[in-house]
Write a protein that binds this DNA or RNA. Sequence first.
DNA 1: CCAAAATACGAAAACGTTTGCGTAGTTTGA
DNA 2: TCAAACTACGCAAACGTTTTCGTATTTTGG
Lengths: 340, 340
Amino acid sequence: MNSGISIKELAAALNLAPSTVSRALNDSYEISEATKQKVINMAEKLNYQPNPFARSLRANKSRTIAVVIPERINNFFAKVIDGIEEIAQEHGYHLLVYNTHEDVKKEKKILSLLQNGRADAIVMSVTSQTSDTSHLQKIHERGLPLVFFDRICGEIPTTKFITNDYESALKGTNHLIQQGCKKIAFLTLSKDLSITKERYRGYSDALKMANLTPEPTFSLYCKHSDEDNTELILKLLQSENRPDGIISSVEKLAISTYQAVRKTNLKIPYDLKIITFSNMSIAGILNPSLTTITQPAETIGQECAKLLIKKLTRPRQPDFLDQIIVIPSQIQIRESTMAR
Amino acid sequence: MNSGISIKELAAALNLAPSTVSRALNDSYEISEATKQKVINMAEKLNYQPNPFARSLRANKSRTIAVVIPERINNFFAKVIDGIEEIAQEHGYHLLVYNTHEDVKKEKKILSLLQNGRADAIVMSVTSQTSDTSHLQKIHERGLPLVFFDRICGEIPTTKFITNDYESALKGTNHLIQQGCKKIAFLTLSKDLSITKERYRGYSDALKMANLTPEPTFSLYCKHSDEDNTELILKLLQSENRPDGIISSVEKLAISTYQAVRKTNLKIPYDLKIITFSNMSIAGILNPSLTTITQPAETIGQECAKLLIKKLTRPRQPDFLDQIIVIPSQIQIRESTMAR
DNA sequence: CCAAAATACGAAAACGTTTGCGTAGTTTGA
DNA sequence: TCAAACTACGCAAACGTTTTCGTATTTTGG
């Protein structure tokens, strides 16, 4: 299989002890320059590659970060991972990536697997089903560095990275109001999600500030397949007292809304305006083009990774502060929220 | 850090030898049922988690598969990884995922890192820059199981999984011809890519069969940013002898085409018809909706993983055959290729 | 009833690193 | 000049598993 040579064989080829070779390769001050050069040259010549598992076993470090996301076919999460990977690679760290598929059972299973030290740290965004957080608590209590992003878990005292969910939702809703909307609906995945709560707060406060009352039926909690969501939204659009504006908490519900609108006689933005949290690059070529609240995905990933790397690579770092770091989104206004 | 208990401590708690505990946990026939139960119960009670690095070191296996892709923000690759992960998880395998960002230098660096046995196998899709394949050859010669999908490397004698690129491109081009196109352009990334060659062959043969001649200027090789691509396509569309049909080898060039068309007076499908290889779920809500050749992404991932797992989990498996396994795409006809 | 086989477990080595400790040989310092 | 310090390296243990080999005890069989 992995027929590489070991440090013993390398040492034998040099008539040196393995310990000397190890120190030479690790640039120890105890080894003379001459010897170091010899070792390095021979290592190059024989293509010596240190066995990562022996290293990990010895050092109790894996140089690996686990990333746990609820969805892979998602521009936001993909970009976050790109950001994490960028920083991780700079420091020689590898990424184990796990997709929970929005399934809390899978999330628990995966976190359980990660208890054994396979990864030095975990960066994750929880499932829309995650309300019981004992599995997360267990990981944190075990001392495994854990940070959250986007869909965070408030109960765990660690650092979380999010965008300005409240403010963006407030601004987004305000934008709809300014464009003339009176009956604004809020689309999201699950009540349990941190982002749902914050974004709903922003939505709700914006309505109140405009002396509009948030109707209960205008908050749509979608959990199922894209088809089911489209159906739900269609029903809302066909109801007697239909909304004239929509703010969507996640990208795919905006897509479902476009799908649903196609089955009606409604026209965006004339009969219905819509704004969504989204990292779609193609929002601009939808017809009508889609107004988005663009989350700083890569930056979030980079910041997560930077924090982890700092903790993992420097000696005696303190535990992560129980804090929420906010990186603001940018609203891109397009046709879907044009005033008539 | 990872303050779990070791098998020694577990053995001590049971007044047994570590070897006995190990055998008990691995359900060895040499251990009595009574002892097995005791061990299992105590392991549960003390939350014993075997150290994966000790195992890997001992067994020279990592239970890890490396996935190397050129782009993460891409529905096709995301779905393939989902497929790989599904099968891998069923067999207790973990996924290290690397994004080369279409950069062959990064590809080389990553493959170099993978030489040390960190992963038991590699499944990858090469960069659009990959023409020299020595780094891939080296991995293969080292005996590390390696399979390719989609963007394959013909020089390496191993198993490759692709879709019916030639046939799909042929059918897709034929479809354009049937819908009335006379001047059909072909968009792709790089001449070096396997998929480019096959899909171009299909495109070219379809033209010949219809007594049309493929014009050199109608083959667009895009390498740069989305903006540059849009510019390139725009120039093509504004040229004197502009195409009336486009078949795009990759999703994002179809998107760029939509972007470019927006800057002209052309109307899809009246002035220009377009079909593309794509795994976008939202092809249907583009305006006009986009005719696609949908690759069986999940299946490709699953098949890659199945093949690898078979080799990794069964004793004395032969090396992968030097063969290409074809899983057909499905053409979904939508508005973008409607006849006038 | 006793040799042979089967059962159930333990001791120790091995996987490939890194590192604490020991030590020749050399250099330093008063 | 001679003890002290330093230089440059080797020995061996340790990380946590799994597995080979060995063996005491029990069971089987003729």
